[in-house]
Simulated assay, not measured.
Amino acid sequence: MTTTLITGANKGLGFETARQLVAAGHTVYLGCRDAGRGRAAAESVGGHFIELDVTSDASVTAAAERIRAEAGRLDVLVNNAGISGAFASPADVTAGSLQEVYDVNVFGTVRMIHAFLPLLRESSGAIVNVSSGMGSITITSDPARGESALHSVVYSSSKSAVNMLTTQYAKAFPELRINAVDPGYTNTEFNGNRGTQTVEEGAEVIVATAMAGADGPSGTYKDRSGTLPW
C-alpha cells in the first residue's frame, strides 16, 4: 500500500489530489491546520486527517513522528500548502511581505522535506512540489505569455525558489523522485474562483507525478501538457 501525505489538503487542489489518490488505492494523510475542516475533508474522501502547520517546526516534527508510528512508511510527499500573499504594487512590497509568504511556500517546503526525508529515503519515495507557471523565469519574461504582464514580486519569487529547491534536492538525493509541477490557472478559492480550468484538471499533473513508478523522472518541472522551462 502506498502511503501519501498532502499538505494544505482540506480544500482546493490539495483536497482534489487526496480524493483522486484515495480512489487510486493510496493511504492518504490530509495535512491541515484546522482540525474541524481537516477531519471533515478526510472523512469525505476516506483518508486520514493529520494536524499540520508547515510554518511550525514542532507541528511538522510531530506529524513525521505520528506517520512513522502509525504507517511505518511514507512513499509520497505532496508539498501543496501555499499562500499568495497580497498582490501589492512592487513599490509597496516589503521584506515582511516576503517573509509571510516564504514561510509557507518556501520554508514550509524545506521543513517538510527535512522532517520526512528519513521516511522517504527508506521507501525510495517521491516528493511533488506544487509550484506555478508564475515561478518560471522563462515564462514570465516571454512577451507572448500572459504571465509576463503580471507584477507578482512576492508569490512568483517564492515559486521560483520552490523550483530551485526541487532541482537541488533532486541532485542531492538521486534515490528519490523529486519534481515540481504547475497545476495551471485552476478555479479555486486561491484565486477567487477565477481560474480557467476545473480543480480536477488542475490536480491531474499532481496526481500523475505522485503515481509515477520507481522508474519515473526526477528533477523535472511540468504541467498537464508537458515539460515547462525553468
Results as ranks from 00 to 15, higher is better:
Val162Lys: 08
Ala69Gly: 12
Ser124Gly: 13
Ser89Gly: 02
Ala81Asn: 01
Leu77Ser: 03
Glu147Pro: 03
Ile178Trp: 08
Leu74Ser: 08
Arg111Asp: 06
Thr94Ala: 07
Val76Asp: 00
Asn163Pro: 05
Gly133Lys: 05
Asn163Ala: 11
Val181Tyr: 12
Glu100Thr: 00
Gly72Ile: 06
Ser136Leu: 01
Ser131Lys: 02
Ala126Gln: 10
Glu100Met: 07
Ala115Tyr: 02
Ile67Pro: 00
Asn163His: 14
Thr140His: 00
Ile178Glu: 01
Gly146Phe: 11
Gly72Arg: 15
Arg68Ala: 10
Ser124Asp: 14
Tyr169Leu: 11
Phe107Asn: 02
Met164Trp: 14
Val110Pro: 07
Leu120Met: 06
Ala86Trp: 10
Ala172Tyr: 15
Asp182Phe: 04
Pro118Cys: 08
Ser132Lys: 04
Glu65Lys: 12
Asp92Cys: 00
Gly125Asn: 12
Ser158Met: 05
Ser136Met: 06
Ile127Gly: 04
Asn179His: 10
Glu100Phe: 07
Asp182Pro: 02
Val106Gln: 15
Tyr185Trp: 15
Ile113Tyr: 03
Ala115Arg: 05
Ser124Lys: 13
Phe107Trp: 15
Ile83Met: 07
Val93Lys: 10
Ile113Lys: 00
Lys171Trp: 10
Arg68Met: 05
Phe107Ile: 09
Val110Met: 13
Glu147Asn: 12
Gln99Ala: 14
Arg145Asn: 14
Arg66Trp: 14
Ser123Ala: 14
Val93Arg: 12
Phe173Pro: 00
Phe107Ser: 02
Asp182His: 09
Arg177Ser: 02
Ser156Glu: 12
Asn105Ile: 05
Leu117Ile: 08
Asp142Ala: 07
Glu122Asn: 08
Gln168His: 14
Ser131Asn: 06
Asp103His: 12
Asn105Cys: 07
Gly82Ala: 11
Leu117Asn: 02
Leu98Met: 13
Val93His: 06
Glu175Met: 08
Ser157Met: 13
